[in-house]
Nucleic acid binder design. Structure first.
Length: 216
DNA sequence: CACCAGGCAAGTA
DNA sequence: TACTTGCATGGT
């Protein structure tokens, strides 16, 4: 692509006009956003919502409460989001990390510079690149671009990137050609996910997609 | 009823 | 480095 910046602006404009302001992933609290980021791994968000509601009803959207809750109880509560045994371990792994190094205080964790924060998160078993970046952007509210399956699919389908690029390469494609702005990155990622869900499934119609403008 | 959804880690070659 | 497999539920 000759002018990545122009292309990215064109896509953003088209999707933003179509979907409007998404207020994507507001979340009631930082810890709730982090819990959601882990529970949504390879899982539809609607199932995650059920699990989060069940946790909330028990007052467990709180790091101190999560620290104390038994694994079996946690597993039972998050079952609707799937992979419940491994995700219970991942939630616990993050909580233990938070208390071991930051006294359970998210604000202290978030005080780190963005690169330090990312490498810290990646050391937690169960937090990979996408989950780490989701936490940084939506919970810590620092400007980093989240790449997901839809991002890759949409860019590849429109031949804006070559196939088989690594996560970091796709992330750089956005971050090297857009201003580092938290709102922009949140909204852009939300627009991509909405587009993928609405127009790139087998059931939905490709020709209805706002990104048709890229083809003509 | 078959298939997949906003990944990740561990194992293998 | 690059590829494969296990993990598990609910919706379409």
């Amino acid at each position: 692509m000759k002018e990545p910046t122009k292309t990215l602006q064109l896509i953003y404009g088209a999707l933003n006009d179509h979907f409007g302001d998404l207020h994507w992933w507001p979340g009631e609290s930082s810890i709730e956003i982090i819990i959601g980021a882990i529970l949504t791994q390879n899982t539809a968000w609607r199932n995650v919502e059920i699990a989060i509601n069940r946790l909330g009803r028990q007052g467990l959207l709180d790091q101190k409460k999560l620290l104390c809750v038994k694994d079996e109880i946690l597993e039972e509560l998050i079952k609707p989001s799937g992979y419940y045994r491994i995700k219970a371990k991942r939630l616990k792994a993050f909580i233990h990390f938070l208390f071991e190094y930051y006294h359970g205080k998210l604000d202290d964790l978030f005080d780190n510079d963005i690169d330090v924060l990312r490498s810290q998160l990646l050391r937690v078993k169960g937090i990979g690149e996408e989950t780490a970046d989701s936490i940084i952007l939506y919970a810590a509210e620092k400007p980093i671009f989240v790449v997901d399956a839809y991002t890759r699919r949409i860019l590849e389908r429109h031949s804006l990137i070559e196939q088989g690029l690594k996560y970091g390469d796709i992330q750089k494609y956005f971050m090297n050609h857009l201003p580092a702005d938290v709102y922009l990155f949140k909204q852009y990622h939300g627009l991509i996910v909405n587009t993928g869900k609405t127009y790139c499934t087998k059931a939905a119609k490709c020709e209805m997609c706002p990104l048709q403008i890229l083809i003509s």
